[in-house]
């Protein structure tokens, strides 16, 4: 991912700028509006057929496209990258519909069962591979996968690639070879800055993802998707996937629904009933 020169990703600047390449990581997840479940092995069931692009990754795609569009430079490229089973191609297709220029799908049975670190290792290898073709300036991810909600990936990726990681950008600016993000944390608001190349994740507050039109949807259907195996990436299957996972799910079961639920209509004493309930349950 390294590059010697300073990559100018400045918005709207004229002159002869070197092309900019942004990799955006997108994940296919079970639709959160649907019935989601875990299998015997504790893995998220991913063959329900009702998967979608992790909606938070639409913000990542939007952020990458917006940066490139602001420059309006010939040769700039947004590459959508996913790691996952067959269905996962839908995630990069959605990114293509939105306007990504290229799509890469790492597809290998040996990836199944990977934990966050394992997935990050595969994504890092894929980014490195893309970097061998031409330098990658920026990797953009969503703030979290709505399946696992770990939010670990962007930081893991930065560490593994040996570049700065700036997660949770609600505002993102790239200029003169540096990236600046503003982010809201539990107790503070921060501004972080780093030299490119870097990894950032964007929140759902960063932008409003575009909605692709019919023409883009049709065009994306025919666009090629590069499929890579672990072997293509020079990764040892024993170190990723279930075999290499550092964590192992021992047990998974649905939580029983809440018992003894009470629903009452307020007929003038609703507040008093609420108070009485708290007292009864020892909650005050």
């Amino acid at each position: 991912m390294s590059r010697a020169r300073t990559p100018p990703v400045a918005g709207g600047a004229g002159g002869s700028l070197a092309p900019v390449r942004i990799v955006v990581c997108v994940k296919h997840v079970p639709d959160i509006q649907g019935e989601r479940s875990l299998g015997e092995d504790g893995r998220v069931v991913r063959d329900g057929g009702d998967g979608t692009l992790n909606e938070l990754d639409e913000n990542a795609v939007e952020a990458a496209l917006a940066l490139v569009e602001a420059r309006a430079q010939e040769g700039d490229e947004v590459v959508a990258l996913t790691v996952g089973p067959d269905d996962a191609v839908e995630a990069v297709r959605r990114a293509l519909q939105m306007g990504a220029h290229r799509a890469v799908h790492v597809l290998d049975d040996a990836v199944a069962g990977a934990d966050a670190v394992g997935t990050a290792q595969v994504l890092a290898a894929a980014v490195r591979r893309l970097g061998e073709e031409a330098p990658v300036d920026l990797v953009v991810t969503g703030m979290a996968g709505l399946d696992g909600l770990t939010s670990l990936l962007p930081t893991l990726l930065g560490e593994l690639l040996g570049v700065a990681a700036l997660p949770l950008a609600s505002h993102l600016e790239v200029e003169g070879g540096t990236v600046t993000v503003r982010r809201d944390l539990d107790h503070a608001t921060e501004t972080l800055r780093a030299a490119l190349p870097a990894v950032v994740s964007v929140t759902d507050a960063a932008n409003d993802p575009r909605y692709p039109g019919f023409k883009q949807i049709m065009a994306a259907r025919k666009a090629p998707v590069t499929v890579l195996s672990l072997d293509d990436l020079g990764l040892d299957p024993a170190l990723t996937g279930a075999a290499g996972a550092r964590t192992q799910v021992l047990l998974a079961r649905p939580r029983p629904p809440r018992q003894d639920r009470v629903l009452v209509q307020d007929t003038g004493d609703g507040g008093a009933r609420l108070a009485a309930f708290l007292v009864e349950r020892g909650l005050v």
């Binding site: 809440r258 003894d260 639920r261 009470v262 629903l263 009452v264 209509q265 307020d266 004493d269 609703g270 507040g271 008093a272 009933r273 609420l274 108070a275 009485a276 309930f277 708290l278 007292v279 005050v284």
Partner: peptide
């Protein structure tokens, strides 16, 4: 309401103040 141990169908602007007053009085 599907995940509530206690659900009160009512206007929050009357239910909440009444609950607060009740708890304060207690």
């Amino acid at each position: 309401f599907e995940i509530a141990d206690l659900g009160i169908v009512g206007d929050l602007f009357t239910v909440l103040p009444q609950a607060a007053a009740e708890l304060r009085a207690r």
